[in-house]
């Protein structure tokens, strides 16, 4: 019975609350995004002039083999990074959720803390460790002096490692939350009914952590797909992702309309991933 007040009943307070954020939303969120959307249907008519003609040529160009290849590669790299994060994140979340209680919070904080540190710095730190003269190769050189330095940077694998490094907390947190919420007596019930620890994970823990896993996959895949810094700094010339191509169109190639079309292809892919993975909400609240 108690619900939201109809705005007409308290029009003054309502307008005072909504006015500023609504204006900001329209002018500084919708208009900029709308402008890019409009640009994606435009053509370059001169050095600095662009005309919105409604053309679909920019979108057609995104399907050319070069760009389609980059799109598919971005999906593959982000997907692979998500899979690795899941493979790593689930056991880690499990280990934290079932750690002795005094350890739980510090461990969780330890996994989350990198999220609060600068993305650029984290990428740089990884780069410094993986370089030819980096720590890993120095350890390798000490163990096997005859070996040439391992090429750990500037290729697809480095990008995947970087994406996992950067996004792992996003995978661990929601899975941990789901496991933490789970009623422990369910596990006891499963063991009581004769399932071993692994069978219990498969038949009880995994299904119950399902929503958390979904959320983790979403929170990892979506930002990974749109990554700019990681492929830029860790990838080679062949491991560029969509974001890098978009940046090039806007800042170097000066082909804004095509860049806009690529940007919106990325937006559509993101929204598609959301639609597929977003948690189903229970029926809308009154």
């Amino acid at each position: 019975m108690r619900g939201r007040t109809d705005w007409r009943r308290e029009a003054g307070p309502f307008l005072a609350l909504i006015g500023l954020p609504l204006a900001w939303f329209l002018l500084l969120i919708l208009v900029p995004l709308g402008a890019v959307w409009a640009l994606s249907f435009a053509i370059n008519t001169g050095v600095a002039s662009i005309e919105v003609t409604g053309t679909l040529a920019n979108y057609a160009r995104t399907l050319e083999p070069t760009y389609l290849g980059i799109l598919l590669k971005s999906l593959a790299l982000a997907g692979l990074a998500t899979l690795v994060s899941l493979g790593l994140g689930f056991p880690v979340a499990l280990a934290i959720a079932f750690a002795p209680p005094p350890w739980r919070t510090p461990l969780l904080v330890a996994v989350t803390l990198p999220f609060w540190t600068n993305l650029l710095i984290r990428t740089y730190a990884l780069m410094a460790v993986l370089r030819d003269e980096g720590l890993v190769n120095r350890v390798v050189a000490a163990l096997a002096p005859d070996l040439a330095p391992l090429p750990l940077l500037y290729h697809d694998v480095a990008v995947v490692v970087g994406l996992v490094y950067v996004h792992l907390p996003f995978m661990v947190l929601p899975i941990f939350a789901a496991l933490d919420r789970m009623d422990r007596s369910l596990i006891e019930a499963s063991l009581d009914l004769g399932a071993g620890p692994l069978a219990t994970i498969r038949h009880v823990v995994l299904p119950l952590a399902g929503p958390g896993i979904r959320a983790g996959v979403l929170l990892t895949f979506v930002p990974a797909l749109g990554s700019y810094l990681v492929p830029d700094l860790l990838g080679g010339p062949g491991s560029q992702m969509i974001a890098n191509v978009i940046e090039r169109q806007f800042r170097r190639a000066d082909d804004w309309p095509f860049g806009a079309a690529l940007a919106f292809v990325l937006v559509y892919l993101t929204l598609l991933a959301l639609a597929l993975l977003a948690p189903r909400r229970p029926a809308a609240r009154a």
Binding site: L22, L28, I29, P32, L33, A35, V36, P223, I246, V267
Partner: peptide, 23 residues
């Protein structure tokens, strides 16, 4: 409006970046 406000969180940063560049 509620969904719209989620846009800046959902839309990849690079797209927001070019949006403000254009704007």
């Amino acid at each position: 409006l509620e969904r719209g406000l989620a846009l800046p969180i959902l839309v990849p940063e690079i797209c927001l970046g070019v949006a403000f560049l254009v704007f």
